[in-house]
């Protein structure tokens, strides 16, 4: 048997678990984009379009929609890599059950991340469908926003899972959401171009993986791709994912093989 097939096995567990709750997640993953797109695209859009401050005559809806796509991916993936990871170590102890089989640490990490990637794939497809229905996908290149969204998700899920396997209690997750995820959601270019931020903050925004995801998704759905910057975005997100996975391997090993 190949090593790679081994990493697919934990997926079955996560799918089995997901089967019990998928109905609820479908509702929220269909309804939530509609709520956000309406509120920002149409509601806030009325104000923004009036001031006509956007480049190239695009509407605020077209501007904000791809940003929301990437930002939502970040939020869901971060959640899936925090409490569920700690739970699989501490409360439901599913990782320990997996380790009692031929599965290795590598398989557990990749299996769980694979499941999160699958969740991203579903979310991105639904969300992009909603954006298209709102008439805010301007180019067939927009389809590529789906794999980019998956990449954004994993870029967040991998380092957070590494932390989830390191920490003893779930207290820090609340702080991660309050002080990292939510602020990033607000200022990483989702709702306004980051050159509107005060100086230092603009630099910080460039460094967040979310901004790279937002900008790349935006280039794709608007059909206005700048190859050089798109490449930078992809490389940055891949690097984040790579480092995150390396950290995850390390911290899973440290926590589970004692």
């Amino acid at each position: 048997m190949t090593d790679y097939a081994l990493s697919l096995r934990p997926l079955e567990f996560f799918f089995a678990q997901y089967k019990r709750v998928w109905r609820g997640t479908i509702v929220s993953s269909v309804v939530t984009p509609i709520i956000y797109l309406t509120a920002f695209g149409f509601g806030l859009g009325t104000l923004v379009d009036r001031s006509a401050d956007l480049p190239d005559g695009i509407s605020y809806l077209e501007f904000v929609a791809p940003g929301l796509l990437a930002a939502t991916a970040m939020q869901i993936a971060s959640f899936e890599a925090s409490w569920p990871v700690l739970s699989a170590i501490k409360w439901s102890r599913q990782y320990h059950a997996m380790l009692a089989t031929p599965l290795r640490i590598v398989d557990i990490v990749l299996g769980h991340q694979g499941f999160i990637a699958f969740r991203m794939l579903m979310t991105a497809t639904i969300y992009l469908g909603a954006i298209a229905a709102f008439g805010a996908v301007n180019s067939p290149l927009g389809l590529l926003a789906i794999p980019v969204t998956v990449l954004v998700g994993v870029a967040f899920a991998a380092p957070i899972a590494a932390w989830g396997a390191y920490t003893e209690t779930d207290a820090s997750f609340v702080a991660i959401f309050r002080f990292l995820i939510i602020p990033m959601f607000l200022f990483s270019g989702t709702f306004f171009p980051i050159d509107r931020l005060p100086g230092v903050l603009e630099v910080v925004a460039y460094a967040t993986p979310l901004w790279h995801g937002v900008d790349l998704c935006r280039q794709l759905t608007l059909g206005d791709v700048h190859p050089a910057s798109a490449l930078v975005h992809v490389v940055y997100l891949l690097a984040f994912t790579g480092v995150g996975l390396a950290l995850a391997f390390y911290s899973y090993r440290r926590r589970l093989l004692v």
Binding site: D53, R178, P193, R196
Partner: peptide
């Protein structure tokens, strides 16, 4: 304590830049 900082957060990182973008209401 975070209850004190959060609104500041929201206003500086979100509302003011957005306002710069939108103008007045």
């Amino acid at each position: 304590l975070s209850g004190f900082f959060e609104p500041l957060f929201y206003l500086t990182f979100f509302v003011y830049p957005l306002g710069d973008f939108i103008g007045g209401v």
